[in-house]
Design a protein around this nucleic acid. Sequence first.
DNA 1: CCTCTTACTGTACGATCATTCAACAAGGAT
DNA 2: ATCCTTGTTGAATGATCGTACAGTAAGAGG
Lengths: 192, 192
Amino acid sequence: MAKFTRLSSEERRAQLIDVGLACLSEGGILHFTVDRICQRAGVSRGLVLHHFGSMAEMLAAVYARIYRDTVPDLGLLPPEARLEALLDGIFAPTAFSRDTLAAWLTLWGQVAVTPALQAEHQRQFRVYQAQVRDAIAAMAEARGRKVEADRLASSLVCLIDGLCLQRCMDPDVISAEAAKAACRDLLAPHLG
Amino acid sequence: MAKFTRLSSEERRAQLIDVGLACLSEGGILHFTVDRICQRAGVSRGLVLHHFGSMAEMLAAVYARIYRDTVPDLGLLPPEARLEALLDGIFAPTAFSRDTLAAWLTLWGQVAVTPALQAEHQRQFRVYQAQVRDAIAAMAEARGRKVEADRLASSLVCLIDGLCLQRCMDPDVISAEAAKAACRDLLAPHLG
DNA sequence: CCTCTTACTGTACGATCATTCAACAAGGAT
DNA sequence: ATCCTTGTTGAATGATCGTACAGTAAGAGG
């Protein structure tokens, strides 16, 4: 019998990212270590840096992963449905759970002090911000309203982040429905 | 000449908290270490744990400090001025700087995974949330409006947090004035 | 000037950290 | 069945981590 099984580079990276995410959720950045991740994944110490080069690079990969898992793709939806789909994705049970949010908070806390992570953040955030802006602009047009889509999108993004923050630090304070309602309330005066 | 100078417990704690805050700003939680803090403060290794007992306790003390430095005391102000004073305090140049915000983000990232910090957060946040609610309620009453002060305060707190988050991760995106405007825009439909 | 409290020093300790690297072997290719 | 690519192992390294603790001395009070 084989002492270990070989996976393709993509498969192994995906598995390690999963484990890394779990470590972040449970213990923050201080638990995001080579030893812990490898032990939990059932592989040897050398494998993480073989696939990612450094822990900072792996952290950036985890950031890209959680971004894709959380922010839905809105491209194919009809204009009036995009905004609601965006909120449904972000405030879905898995994305808006304490575990996922704890990972988000940890990553945010590292963005400003980890160059590799900061670069990944800017890459991901640009796409996200554009999606939110377009969803708002599409809705405004569908309803025949003139809005400052940029400013409104910026406010909505901030509100969403803050809701995630508060939800993570005290889950009882804000439910997913209350979070969606707060977002709609922010937009209502401008979109009707 | 003396080999070292003795300070009162309060003075030394204040100094070490200052240094700890600086370490958090510059390198996140991974730079919040006994060695770094002591070296930077010009004291020996044993002093931190002499005054704080553990690094987790010291982190909680730093959290309490940054909270008090950021959130202004609104008690004595006239009802209509409280909301604006709150925003002025939170978005003041020092509080809304990259350094201070980086420390905030780091601390937030640790709240969910550090019991001592979580306890301190709940203590501080309760007071903060109540201040925001009262400022909103006072303004609503002054203007003769009926509002759901709780929900509105919750939304405002989330928006403020999100603004801090975005500002820290990319200072060019949001100015202090834009942040204040976003907050006023959230409240305007309810408070006029 | 003496005493006493306690702020303070500095070493020691065991654990854990990220990274490097040479050797091994799994499994598709030929 | 053999070769070869490369995913994988595991030990070694040197730095750094938090905490414990026995001893030192500063400086206020008597």
